[in-house]
Design a protein around this nucleic acid. Structure first.
Lengths: 234, 234
DNA sequence: CCAAAAGTGTTCCCGATACACCCATGA
DNA sequence: TCATGGGTGTATCGGGAACACTTTTGG
């Protein structure tokens, strides 16, 4: 007999808010729920915590099921425990957000789960409290990206400065001055200019940059200030 | 039969990291665990999530049991789910931190739970992963207090600027320049000077201030900058 | 009158912002 | 040649940091 008898055991879920960047737009990955209740409605990708599985493991497992990707940047954001949040049975859900480079994402897998990328502005209504989770994830993403260089996690190995700016603008849903943005960015010393250009989006072409991973890891904790007028956060 | 059969139900706990300020030092409230396993060892105050109880409710219930206080500032910080974190039975724990004014705290209740305030530097080793929780709470407190005026939650209604400075210095374990600190503080417009002085800690005495609650609430989201050289955060 | 803490101003510098024109190229 | 997006420099301003002396009063 355990010392903890008399206390309820409860279902625990993990839900992932998956942000992706395709080189132009910031998007979110949603799935059509495959089982009851709320079958066939749009939802975050989630799953139940298994015995002997850590929370982070569960989140990574769920992410891998959906995208095939491993080693992706993930972070726990909040745990939702309203007793009525899932009408079927009480479930406490631990929400994670993940940042992925859409170009690395294996398209075919989305078929299996009816997964689809949505522009943030065109996201459908989600089941349960997933809209709240989503909103919180966005807030935290803004909060954190204003201070830490996490948005690099969304970029391919080679990227251009205009792409990066467009990513930041997507996250903050605003427009930055490109001169100031470039200057701040380069002043971090985190970027290594390449010789090739990306000719995809303009005639002149934009130079590719790579991330200096050594410095990136060393400076990850550093306090940056990419975002002008740090208005209202979290 | 539920749609969710086949998934494990798991114990869920809530643990509170309770920071307090006595006018001089920043402290943390710990209890001697009253039951097995690890009975009589120092631990965070915690409890199990009850049926039909939201997570925040559980955290407030636990806090009230220990301190008798309600309406205290509390915030969820992280959920810990290592399968082996509690050797007795798998338990996922949602950690909260709370900020309280020690002078408001009813001393007598501590008896019932063998609770004791500890200086952060003199904290004993805690059970399970509570030391980790504690460390994370401290990090988050620093992180957040650098940006938001949450440390006011730890103060009594009337407080002096030297007290406030000593609180900030306790949180960041460092020393600030008092001229710069005072100027920043007053420039927020959040403080209302009182006519009386606190003669407790000096011969000259320090003027009391009160918080302008209206402005406090309005500006809570504002971006401040109390902490010099925002070094390494979270 | 002395010790101990409270209170107060100025200077300097860096970093954020605002702002506009030239460049390279493919069509 | 022209339209499109890429790339760059300067001037101003505000806020943060460094820094030391005077004030008060109980003992």
């Amino acid at each position: 007999m355990t010392y903890y008898s008399g206390h309820p055991r409860i279902l625990i879920a993990v839900d992932c808010i998956i942000f992706g960047f395709d080189g132009t737009d910031l998007k979110i990955l949603l799935v059509k729920r495959a089982f009851e209740p709320e079958k066939n409605k749009w939802s975050l990708m989630g799953g139940f915590l298994q015995p002997d599985e850590a929370l982070d493991e569960a989140a990574n497992r769920v992410l891998k099921q959906l995208t095939g990707l491993e080693g992706v940047y993930m972070e726990q954001i909040h745990t939702f425990g309203d007793p009525k949040r899932d009408p079927e049975e009480r479930t406490v859900s631990v929400a994670y957000f993940a940042l992925i480079d859409i170009q690395q994402y294996e398209q075919q897998l989305s078929e299996d789960y009816h997964a689809e990328w949505f522009l943030l502005s065109k996201k459908p209504r989600l089941i349960f409290d997933h809209d709240n989770m989503m909103a919180l994830a966005q807030k935290q993403l803004r909060y954190k990206a204003a201070i830490h260089p996490i948005l690099f996690e969304l970029l391919p190995q080679k990227f251009t400065i205009p792409q990066l700016q467009s990513l930041y603008q997507g996250v903050y849903n605003t427009v930055f001055d490109n001169r100031n943005f470039t200057r701040k960015l380069l002043s971090t010393g985190l970027l290594i200019k390449q010789k090739e250009k990306d000719k995809g989006s303009s005639k002149k072409g934009a130079f590719y940059y790579k991330l200096d991973k050594r410095k990136y890891k060393a400076n990850f904790q550093a306090f940056l200030n990419f975002v002008p007028k740090p208005d209202k956060f979290l």
